[in-house]
């Protein structure tokens, strides 16, 4: 299953990818911001994990744009964030983010989040 990992921090992308590898996923596309992510997204991507605060185009803006695309309407989007302020989360969800995970997370927590979203996408 192919993941699109969006984060402006290369280190952070590596951390996410490492975690995904540990829980058994092997296919990844990476992007440094929302703009790039929109370019790299296609139907082969089955799950999106995006950072929130990124230059040029934030995770929220990216998700919103993604949801407006026919091929991006149904893909699960998990947002990685460092703060869990309710209003922010709701704003993100309104934009189409399905759930969020707070940094720092363990691979196990990430797995739970992903598993929870996968049947819904099926």
């Amino acid at each position: 299953m192919k993941f699109l990992v969006v984060d402006d921090s290369a280190t952070m992308r590596r951390i996410v990818v490492n975690a995904l590898q540990r829980i058994g996923f092997n296919e990844f596309v990476e992007a440094g911001d929302g703009q790039e992510a929109l370019g790299k997204y296609d139907e082969s991507v089955k799950f999106v994990i995006t950072d929130w605060n990124m230059p040029n185009m934030s995770g929220t803006e990216f998700t919103k744009a993604l949801r407006e695309r026919p091929d991006g309407r149904d893909v699960p989007v998990l947002m990685v964030t460092a703060r869990s302020v309710r209003e922010d989360i709701l704003t993100a969800m309104e934009a189409g983010v399905n759930n969020y995970v707070v940094k720092p997370f363990t691979p196990q927590v990430l797995k739970e989040k992903i598993d929870a979203l996968l049947p819904a996408a099926a």
Partner: peptide
């Protein structure tokens, strides 16, 4: 609430 998820949140 306050934090519905993220067991690790406290350590952030």
């Amino acid at each position: 609430m306050p934090s519905p998820v993220a067991p690790a949140a406290s350590s952030s």
